[in-house]
Nucleic acid binder design. Sequence first.
DNA 1: CTCCTCACG
DNA 2: GACGTACGTGAGGAGC
Length: 952
Amino acid sequence: MADKQHLYLVDGSAYIFRAYHRLPPLTDPQGTPVGAVYGYTTMLWKLADDLDKADGPTHLAVILDKGSTSFRNEIYDQYKANRPPPPEDLVPQFPLIRDATRAFSLPCIEEDGLEADDLIASYARVATRRGWDVTIVSSDKDLMQLVGRCAEPDDGVPEGGCIDMLDTMKNQRIGPDEVVEKFGVPPELVGDVLALMGDSVDNVPGIFGIGPKTASKLVVEHGGLAAALDAAPEMKKSKLRDRLIEGREMAELSRVLVQLKEDCELPMPLEDFKLTTVPRDPLAAFLEKHGFTSLLRRLDGGNGSLSRPTNLHPAKPVNKGAEASQGGNRQPLPQMPEIDRSTYECVQTIERLERWIERAFAAGLVAIDTETSALDAMRADLAGISLALGPNDACYIPLAHGGSDMFAERPQQVARETALTMLRPLLESDAVLKVGQNVKYDLNVLARHDIAMAPVDDTMIVSFALDAGRSLDGIGGGHGMDELAQRHLGHTTLTFKDICGSGKKAIPFGEVPLDRATEYAAEDADVTWRLYANLKPRLATEGGSRIYQRVDRPLIPVVAQMERHGIKVDRGQLAKLSEEFAAETGRLEAEIHAIAGAAFTIGSPKQLGDVLFDKMGYKGGRKGKSGQYSTDQAILERLSAQGAEIADKVLEWRQLTKLKSTYTDALQAAIHPDTGRVHTSYSLVGAQTGRLSSTDPNLQNIPIRTEIGRQIREAFVAEDGNVLLAADYSQIELRLAAHMADVPELKQAFANGEDIHARTAAEMFGEVTRDTRASAKTINFAILYGISRWGLAARLKVEADEAQAMIDTYFQRFPGIQRYIMETLETVRERGYSETLFGRKTWFPRIGSKNQTERQGSERAAINAPIQGTSADIIKRAMARMMPALEAAGLGHVRMLLQVHDELVFELPATDVAAASPVIERVMAEAATPAVSLDVPLGIEIGTGASWGQAH
DNA sequence: CTCCTCACG
DNA sequence: GACGTACGTGAGGAGC
């Protein structure tokens, strides 16, 4: 089998669409967009580079779609009919794909009237019949029909070649097992599943109301599409049965559409696909032309890595000023050897561990990552720790691998408690900086083993301080390790999924064999070390030090501790509410169905819309792209005003089901079995403005606005003998707006402790009534959010003209506000980012967009960000100072539990409220000083009670 | 996996 | 003269 042939068929068209959406928009020296082409080039490179490797290609061709119609359009004229035109900056890249392929001297196949899929299927068939292996480079689900297929016995080959797929973006081989995992059926039945579920992208109709899950279930149960359709009339009466009977024709049509044509004439014989060493010159010319200099260096044997090309520019620079600073994102990398996972050490003895600890002390800086059995730091068990002291100088220390399988031998490793005892002095040493990626997680895991790791630095938060908001269409703007490694190191990390699998097949990290575990874990530490070397110097040169060192970094251990504290919730109280909500919901459901005259799923906006507007004939508009009726609160309230009783009941039903599913049910499930409390996880990089966000569960959106929802807050309680204390900043964003926009009238009003909305009403309307105050309040908020006449008109339920008149009046009375808005936007357009009073940057790459909606959206966000962000900075500073201040007052036992943007929640003995309140108030009120001196006082409101509800 | 809706500041 | 949008989040349910 030495001369085994292996054909790679690259689905080029599909690749560039994916590459376009996954990669940052880059342009070459001529100004042509080349982001997708760059991705495509590196992929071809990698494939061609694998020549001669085991399982690498011996033959390779690129297959492209040609034209927009195929024989399928003759069968079904709507085929691919609703596909939107490709994005503007992708179009010029199509021809470049052919150029790139030619540059590699690779064959490029396309044929009128045929789709790439059909050509691929045909070539694959011919090749397997000759006994060749075939790898289809694509992730297209239609092509998964071919996976696992081998030559037939009567093809006359002794050992038939087989087909698999390779998804280069996920670096994943797709064999029959993966297909079964995805579709629940083997490859030969994938076509049947696709025919049932349809495909909205290709506009294959399928059967309405049947998705992947149902489709797969039907095919498995009946053994195929035809059998499932035949069996429909005998099924018990159900929606599904009706759909199958009604949709029969559509399914049969869809089956034909998804069938790949395997007998196409082959435009070029297989032999011509023979892969040889790629001739240098045409490729060099291509790379040079498009400015792919790092690839060019690599081609000529230099040390250039396959990382981002250094002389490409981000597309559509906001303007000249912004371009320069965006370039800061792409400084030349410090010379580092490429990541080589074979250099990592698995530390299995006390002697080796001692050596690493010794070296870490000597280095003074160590990147660290903990591996655990789960994602939740409060529940996960520690499986191992990895350390890195430099590029390719990393190790993994397994601590709890193996052992769950009684028959497997537990691999050699240092006992967990022994290792942690040895590591503790290092992890707690002031003389050694520990660098992590999302180090709050590691902090909490280690805290549960009584290790208080300090001092720490965090590459994720450094990235946030530098690049918050810097994504384009969500590409490459995140701060996760995989994304940062890709962006800054040009390196694709092993993912957790690669190692542990996903879904039902997933195994805990502690069951991963040590060699694989070491590659993954040590790589994480290595990457963290490199990212730190890469990002940290930028803090100083790009003005991020202040916010990172003074605000965000000190917050890491503080928030970690809040998460560990958690908050007690009264399970019985929640269960009681759940029952009440369920009963009331059931009653409402019956009433709603009675009014509608039929049963339907009230929770389905689609069905509800059809009932209200088609069946019952109420008036209301269709909404935008989905073609669905909107049934949101505003619409239902309007219907209710017209006397539609059903609308009221639906609103009430929605409120109750929401409260039950999201709060009373979910919170009970979130109670930690050991602590009996609920531990949220705060994201320190969650909101681009600098706010925290809260997940699993979200404790920043517990109901308060309605009486019925408020009952849920009553279930958040203090332990016996304790009380909860809630401290709020009052109107902090308006106060900051008054300061930042320099509005004397508003500043004066705050200084005097006036009702700010009443004062606004007086200024604007001359008199203060309930109505004018309410309007003034709406307008005040509209200002903070970036105002538009239509938005204000919708909120106030007046005409746009009238809203505009109010805005004009507002600007006239408070000219500082208009000036602030103009100046903020000017600065953001010029520099590309906004800044808070404490120097936090938020980037707005879309501020110069030609798309009006997009641009105006960015403008509103840019007006709001400095205000919302400054408020976030202030409460973060208060949080960082809180415990030291309380400790100084002998109140170190007071526990800070929650942060809800402008509110902090504490738990303390009832007897300490009098002593603690003034300390808390002072720390919060003075949180801006001395860095910033505000012209307005920061007002704090404090309340206490046995529950969070009562503390308000 | 995306959309819709809705909970919070 | 439009966009039934407000700024910032996260979660659950439905659909396909």
